[in-house]
Design a protein around this nucleic acid. Structure first.
Length: 288
DNA sequence: AAGAGGCCCTGATAGC
DNA sequence: TGCTATCAGGGCCTCT
């Protein structure tokens, strides 16, 4: 669930469930995530009330009543699962598993609440959780991450400043969280397709019109994805949770060999590799 | 100093 | 069927 829209969907559904609730207990069965969980990780959380649930870029942020902040980054394969004690299940967009559908492996962390628990599952363990002891420290850590396209000050001038004289290609720039935050491989491909920009075009060579389109479609693609509940690419077989629907709207991602969907274009979508990441584009519509 | 590539992991799938 | 190789929604680190 890693890109901005998926984290936003999780945030929305999680918030409804856990806000103002108290964490009764925390059980960690594997501390070796992307970064090793600190020894006192649990003690900061136990008996704390959740005061807010936020998102910045691809980070989920849980604010606690001791003014500390828990952040979760899902990496490539991290997911949260809500497990209710009673059988009267209300569906949320947060993946819901009843006890037989919960993945059997890689449930690394359990957060116990009164009537339910939230489970962090992550097979590849590229995700991580960290606790910050003040908003100031959190802001410092996420400083680079407030450059997300949905931010209202993400405009043409702002992007122009970012691109400056960058000699790397626009695909890599979109993926570089220090330049622009929240966009991952799926949405980078989709945004470039709508903007009709070749993924290999260098940042410094982008025209004013290119930049204008990038600003517009970054916002539009991400917002549309959020409206559709995000994208579900690979799912656990027994998943009972609500899946995103935006994958049905993909124009290029994973569309190698299929015809371009633009009117009057008969080109076939190509797949190339840029910095080890799959890149899909239409060589006719995204000529330059 | 910016940019490219390797690497951290497990699991699903394709190809033989 | 069962093996092996490749690939996957990310990003940090190292080397140039």
């Amino acid at each position: 669930m890693p890109e901005l829209p998926e984290v936003e969907i999780v945030k929305q559904s999680l918030k409804k469930t856990i806000i103002y609730k108290k964490i009764i207990n925390v059980k960690v069965s594997n501390r070796n995530l992307r970064f090793k969980l600190k020894k006192n990780f649990e003690t900061y959380l136990i008996k704390r009330k959740i005061t807010d649930v936020l998102r910045i870029a691809k980070y989920l942020i849980i604010a606690l009543d001791n003014n500390k902040y828990l952040i979760i980054h899902f990496g490539m394969s991290g997911t949260l699962h809500l497990l209710k004690k009673d059988k009267n299940i209300k569906n949320t967009n947060l993946s819901f598993y009843n006890s037989c559908d919960l993945p059997k492996k890689h449930n690394h962390i359990e957060f116990f609440f009164d009537n339910f628990k939230v489970i962090y599952n992550d097979p590849r363990r590229f995700g991580f959780l960290k606790i910050f002891n003040s908003r100031e420290n959190l802001n410092k850590y996420l400083d680079n991450y407030e450059k997300e396209p949905l931010n209202k000050n993400f405009n043409v001038n702002h992007l122009k400043n970012i691109l400056g004289s960058k000699k790397k290609n626009i695909k890599n720039i979109l993926l570089d969280q220090k330049c622009i935050s929240g966009i991952g491989n799926i949405y980078a491909n989709e945004i470039l397709f709508f903007s009709k920009i070749n993924p290999k075009k260098l940042g410094k060579n982008l025209s004013d019109i290119d930049i204008k389109k990038l600003v517009f479609y970054s916002k539009k693609v991400l917002n549309n994805a959020i409206l559709k509940g995000g994208s579900t690419i690979r799912n656990f077989k027994n998943a009972n949770g609500i899946e995103g629907k935006f994958q049905d709207d993909f124009k290029v991602y994973n569309k190698k060999g299929l015809k371009c969907t633009n009117k009057n274009c008969i080109q076939i979508i190509k797949k190339i590799t840029i910095s080890n990441r799959s890149t899909f584009y239409c060589s006719y519509c995204q000529k330059s």
